[in-house]
Design a protein around this nucleic acid. Structure first.
Length: 504
DNA sequence: GTGGGGGAG
DNA sequence: CGTTCTCCCCCAC
């Protein structure tokens, strides 16, 4: 069950991702000083104070509100930790939203850009819900899942007339301002009415209930795992004029070449971990085979898509048409040859597959004029799943795996600073997040404690060992408290150490 | 499995 | 900034 999401909204070249914690994960169970809070809140009010944390794991569970508070603080600690390391190690600033669902954490991740984090504070339910208040202020089209078409339908319903939008601009925004609140409070609004407005042939089943839930802050969408390979790879180009077979063939060769190179870089990996039996050796020895690559996933289908330009009207008016049409065929297996040259493979693919597809799409010898051509490979069949199923991004699972991961390097030394089993992370953490640093309070936000500056120079940090490349060691591994031996994720250690200093 | 609609970034 | 280039999921057939 997912009840906790942190949206990491992208900047620069990093794509957004979400982290979640399970309701029954052990995080809330370990002794933890959650009195600190990082970043901003929505609304800009102090978070509810917490009851003192239970002194032993067997103490009674905190109230529901305290649990929510605790989890939001924990989320802010995790977000701070991730943003901190992201900026320090890679130079990326980032913005994070912390809430209990993907919808809300994503939306609240849009505030305090480009270098901050924002948490929606309780209450989450009832008339005073901050979630509902936050959503209500948004334009209806800003809700993820409500794009241009659905937003226009909703605006039209609320306004009782077609919404006005910038003339001549297809992508232009609307001048009408219809908020989530306007839609929610419009006469007789409910899931069934929405289904009537938005539903129809081809539309998603239960779209009305889904949008109704979203507008009310209800979102049970799960945090998906990252995949090794995308579902499809496509390459396309648009054209002012493309109306001869010769030009089309040339463009198909261009596109297919790009696509094949993309496939080779994105869908293959170095196969330098091959096991070879070695004479006289017991067992197997790993020998690097430089340059050898293998396919991670093999697409099964090839799709050719075009966007024909609207036939010129008699008066020469331009009715922009964005309809695409496509034909697809099985992707021939020869394309996966890594020994043949791209050019040779492309030539074969264009002649044997793409041109036939094109003629299926445009049987007429001429008369068409294409404004866009797209070539895609789809229907990936993953080969030899390498256990890279993205479990490293599942924080709940990460905690559960800690027992076995940490068992072998549990430290007896009380002073974790001197341990060389900790990849430098523990020391790093303590230097950077020690209480004095965390207690610094910004003058302009009396209720928020911020780590400021976000990035502090760490003396003689070991760059190589401190990397989270592959996210296995540093991110996936946790820490052991030098005082009590409790295991927990690295980002939580500072708050745990503060717990030991709390008065009884 | 194929073709299309709608959406996100 | 608006537009383009990808990528996604869902649906009907």
């Amino acid at each position: 069950m997912i009840d906790y999401n942190i949206g990491l909204v992208n900047h620069n070249d990093l794509s957004g991702s979400f982290f979640h914690l399970d309701r029954d994960d052990p995080t809330v169970g370990f002794p933890y000083d959650a009195s600190s809070f990082f970043g901003h809140t929505y609304p800009a009010t102090p978070m509810q104070p917490l009851s003192p944390p239970p002194s032993t794991p067997t103490s009674p569970l905190p109230s529901e509100l305290d649990t929510l508070n605790l989890r939001l603080r924990l989320g802010s600690h995790l977000a701070q930790h991730l943003r901190h390391r992201l900026e320090e190690q890679y130079g990326y600033t980032s913005t994070v939203g912390i809430s209990t669902t993907k919808l809300v954490s994503k939306l609240v991740g849009n505030v305090n850009k480009p270098r901050g984090q924002t948490t929606i504070v309780p209450p989450y339910d009832g008339e005073e819900s901050n979630v509902v208040a936050f959503l209500d202020a948004h334009d209806i089209g800003k809700i993820p899942g409500i794009g241009f078409k659905l937003a226009q339908k909703l605006r039209q319903h609320v306004l009782q007339r077609p919404p006005v939008h910038d003339a001549g601009l297809v992508y232009g925004g609307t001048e009408e301002n219809v908020s989530v609140s306007d839609v929610r409070h419009s006469l007789g609004m409910c899931a069934e009415l929405l289904e009537g407005i938005l539903g129809g042939p081809g539309s998603q089943k239960g779209i009305g209930a889904k949008i109704w839930d979203l507008m009310n802050g209800v979102d049970d969408a799960e945090v998906g795992k990252a995949r090794v390979a995308p579902r499809q790879i496509s390459i396309e180009d648009s054209y002012i004029r493309l109306d001869t077979v010769e030009e089309v063939k040339r463009e198909l060769q261009m596109l297919a070449g790009s696509l094949l190179r993309r496939m080779r870089t994105d869908l293959t990996e170095d196969d330098d971990e091959a096991d070879f039996p070695v004479d006289g050796a017991v067992g197997q020895v790993t020998i690097a085979v430089p340059g050898k690559r293998r396919w991670l996933a093999k697409p099964r289908n090839l799709r050719l898509t075009t966007r024909p330009r609207q036939a010129r009207n008699p008066d020469g008016s331009r009715v922009r048409c964005f309809k695409r049409i496509s034909r697809s065929a099985p992707l021939p297996g020869f394309i996966f040859s890594l020994s043949e040259s791209v050019d040779a493979l492309v030539d074969k693919l264009v002649n044997e597959t793409l041109l036939p597809l094109f003629h299926r799409l445009h049987p007429e010898k001429s008369g068409w004029d294409l404004s866009l051509v797209n070539v895609a490979v789809t229907n990936m069949a993953e080969t030899a799943t390498d256990d890279r199923d993205g479990t490293g991004r599942d924080i709940g699972r990460m905690f559960k795996r800690q027992e076995s991961v940490l068992k072998e390097w549990r430290v007896e030394d009380k002073d974790a600073l001197s341990s060389d089993h900790d990849n430098g992370l523990h020391r790093d953490m303590m230097l950077r997040d020690k209480p004095e640093v965390m207690q610094r309070v910004r003058d302009d936000s009396p209720h928020c404690m911020d780590l400021e500056p976000l990035v502090e120079s760490t003396p003689d940090g070991n760059e190589e060992e401190d990397s989270w490349d592959g996210e296995e060691r540093s991110f996936d591994a946790g820490d052991v408290c030098g005082t009590c031996g409790t295991m927990m994720p690295t980002f939580a250690m500072a708050a745990h150490l503060r717990y030991h200093t709390l008065p009884d």
